[in-house]
Simulated scan of single mutants.
Amino acid sequence: LGDASDISDDEVKKFADAQAKVEEVKGEYQSQVQAASEDPEKAMEVQREAQQEMVKAVKDTGLDVRKYNQIAQLAQYDTDLRERIQEKM
């Protein structure tokens, strides 16, 4: 997993930006997924689309998805890192 101290302020900033965008995408697609709940195939398609949008949102900030996920995981256990992320939001 690595160590939160390996994560630069720049990466924390990018993560905060990416997370905000990912949440936005989730919000946008949530109603579409619910609307498609009668139609499992459509729901899957909408979720795939949402996934791609989230990946794009992360990449647009300059982070790769692996790094994004790593920071997200570390933040679950590391209060200092969480605080650093909060400061950038």
Results as ranks from 00 to 15, higher is better:
residue 64 D to V: 06
residue 34 Q to W: 07
residue 45 E to F: 02
residue 71 I to F: 01
residue 11 E to Y: 03
residue 81 L to G: 03
residue 53 E to Q: 12
residue 58 V to C: 04
residue 44 M to T: 10
residue 83 E to T: 14
residue 25 V to I: 14
residue 57 A to L: 02
residue 62 G to R: 08
residue 37 S to T: 03
residue 7 I to P: 02
residue 9 D to V: 09
residue 25 V to G: 04
residue 43 A to L: 03
residue 24 E to W: 12
residue 4 A to W: 02
residue 37 S to N: 11
residue 41 E to M: 09
residue 37 S to V: 11
residue 88 K to S: 15
residue 84 R to D: 14
residue 45 E to R: 13
residue 87 E to L: 13
residue 11 E to S: 08
residue 66 R to V: 12
residue 24 E to F: 12
residue 79 T to D: 13
residue 69 N to Q: 11
residue 84 R to T: 09
residue 64 D to E: 10
residue 29 Y to I: 00
residue 11 E to Q: 15
residue 35 A to Q: 12
residue 12 V to S: 08
residue 32 Q to D: 08
residue 51 Q to N: 15
residue 30 Q to S: 15
residue 13 K to W: 01
residue 34 Q to C: 11
residue 76 Q to D: 00
residue 22 V to A: 09
residue 88 K to I: 03
residue 74 L to F: 01
residue 75 A to E: 02
residue 52 Q to C: 07
residue 49 E to T: 09
residue 75 A to Y: 01
residue 47 Q to Y: 00
residue 10 D to P: 07
residue 82 R to T: 14
residue 32 Q to V: 03
residue 55 V to E: 10
residue 79 T to F: 11
residue 12 V to C: 11
residue 42 K to Q: 09
residue 71 I to G: 05
residue 3 D to I: 06
residue 57 A to I: 03
residue 78 D to E: 11
residue 13 K to P: 07
residue 44 M to K: 10
residue 16 A to R: 09
residue 47 Q to N: 05
residue 68 Y to S: 01
residue 11 E to K: 07
residue 28 E to L: 09
residue 32 Q to F: 05
residue 59 K to I: 02
residue 33 V to L: 06
residue 21 K to A: 15
residue 55 V to W: 03
residue 78 D to R: 10
residue 64 D to N: 15
residue 60 D to S: 05
residue 36 A to N: 03
residue 76 Q to W: 00
residue 33 V to S: 14
residue 14 K to N: 04
residue 74 L to N: 04
residue 31 S to V: 12
residue 1 L to M: 14
residue 83 E to W: 06
residue 19 Q to I: 14
residue 46 V to T: 06
residue 33 V to F: 04
residue 50 A to E: 04
residue 44 M to V: 11
residue 11 E to I: 04
residue 17 D to F: 09
residue 46 V to K: 02
residue 21 K to W: 02
residue 21 K to E: 12
residue 72 A to N: 14
residue 68 Y to H: 07
residue 14 K to Y: 05
residue 29 Y to P: 03
residue 35 A to F: 00
residue 53 E to S: 13
residue 65 V to I: 13
residue 74 L to Q: 01
residue 62 G to K: 13
residue 52 Q to A: 15
residue 63 L to Q: 05
residue 87 E to W: 08
residue 21 K to C: 06
residue 77 Y to N: 15
residue 48 R to N: 12
residue 57 A to H: 02
residue 38 E to C: 12
residue 25 V to N: 01
residue 58 V to E: 05
residue 79 T to Y: 10
residue 45 E to A: 15
residue 11 E to V: 06
residue 65 V to L: 12
residue 33 V to I: 14
residue 72 A to T: 02
residue 76 Q to A: 07
residue 59 K to M: 09
residue 67 K to G: 06
residue 70 Q to I: 05
residue 87 E to P: 14
residue 44 M to G: 14
residue 86 Q to D: 15
residue 30 Q to V: 00
residue 10 D to Q: 14
residue 84 R to N: 13
residue 82 R to C: 13
residue 24 E to P: 13
residue 31 S to I: 12
residue 13 K to N: 06
residue 56 K to N: 08
residue 53 E to F: 07
residue 70 Q to P: 14
residue 11 E to R: 07
residue 62 G to Y: 08
residue 25 V to L: 01
residue 55 V to R: 11
residue 64 D to K: 10
residue 42 K to W: 00
residue 86 Q to K: 15
residue 86 Q to F: 13
residue 49 E to W: 00
residue 52 Q to N: 08
residue 24 E to H: 14
